[in-house]
């Protein structure tokens, strides 16, 4: 996304934004807006805020932290998913096309229904499960064991990866999708967790896990530069190793 023009202070940028108003009952449209660059390093969320605060306060989108931590403002930007708050306007091809995360039920404008996404996340029991007595202080890990979680624990569940996956678009009712599978691997790799067998048993399924066809859109969309495809392959290898 670095093939666009240079944007300097005072220049005007053009955005085409997906609009859907449920009460009006019309089909979604793309609406054009113009925003003036008023600070250096301006991000896409700043442009959306500018539109909402100064041009059209009915524009609806999610946002919270504004710095790539909460994962609220995942949208499709010029055809690729990303977080509006950490995507620089500089370099984006204009008109910047902003749509809701793909393959999702649209509630309004850029807000999509994440219910199914979080139901799938919940299905992998994303918490530490142990059978041995809880230690007096904390569960200890060696630095090497802790290192196994790098590239996994950073996931903020923004949904950019899952909603970029064609396998999930077509089989999302059964295929768990990249975000949930990366999170599942986060617990499989955790040396303190004692439910690895059950977790692998749960995932070994033609649809839940094996619908991944290594399309790798997830890896390219992840705003935290994680690699869900690799995480999915690690689960597959863990299943093979378990069987010996």
């Amino acid at each position: 996304m670095t093939d666009g023009p240079t944007t300097t202070l005072g220049t005007t940028i053009t955005l085409d934004i997906f609009r859907y108003h449920p009460e009006q009952g019309k089909k979604p449209i793309m609406q054009r807006f113009h925003v003036t660059i008023n600070k250096s390093g301006m991000k896409l969320l700043d442009a959306l805020n500018s539109i909402k605060w100064h041009q059209d306060n009915t524009l609806t989108y999610r946002r919270s932290c504004g710095e790539g931590v909460c994962g609220s403002d995942g949208v499709n930007i010029n055809g690729v998913n990303g977080l509006a708050c950490i995507t620089p306007i500089e370099g984006l091809k204009q008109p910047i096309e902003i749509r809701p995360l793909p393959g999702m039920s649209v509630i309004r404008d850029l807000v999509v229904d994440m219910t199914h996404f979080f139901d799938q996340y919940r299905s992998i029991k994303p918490w530490m499960q142990t059978t041995t007595p809880t230690p007096e202080h904390e569960h200890l890990q060696t630095p090497r064991e802790r290192q196994q979680l790098n590239g996994l624990y950073e996931c903020i569940l923004c949904g950019c990866c899952t909603t970029s996956c064609p396998s999930w678009w077509w089989n999302g009712d059964k295929f768990l999708g990249p975000a949930t599978l990366l999170q599942a691997n986060r617990w499989i790799q955790d040396s303190r967790d004692e439910a690895t067998e059950e977790r692998l048993e749960h995932l070994e399924d033609n649809f839940k896990l094996y619908r991944c066809h290594q399309i790798m859109n997830c890896m390219q969309a992840c705003p935290k530069s994680l690699n869900p495809t690799k995480a999915i392959n690690e689960i597959k290898r863990a299943i093979v190793e378990r069987k010996g």
């Binding site: 997906f18 859907y20 449920p22 089909k27 979604p28 499709n76 010029n78 055809g79 690729v80 096309e97 749509r99 809701p100 995360l101 793909p102 393959g103 999702m104 039920s105 649209v106 509630i107 999509v112 229904d113 219910t115 199914h116 909603t163 970029s164 064609p166 678009w169 999302g172 009712d173 059964k174 066809h213 290594q214 399309i215 790798m216 859109n217 890896m219 390219q220």
Partner: peptide, 29 residues
């Protein structure tokens, strides 16, 4: 979409394949 929440059946689905930018890894697969 079949996996969407029942209450959202009247809602439109956001565009997917028609708007997603083709990536080399996607083409390869």
């Amino acid at each position: 979409h079949p996996h969407h929440h029942a209450s959202s059946s009247s809602r439109p689905q956001s565009p997917r394949l028609s708007i997603y930018r083709w990536q080399t890894t996607m083409i390869a697969s």
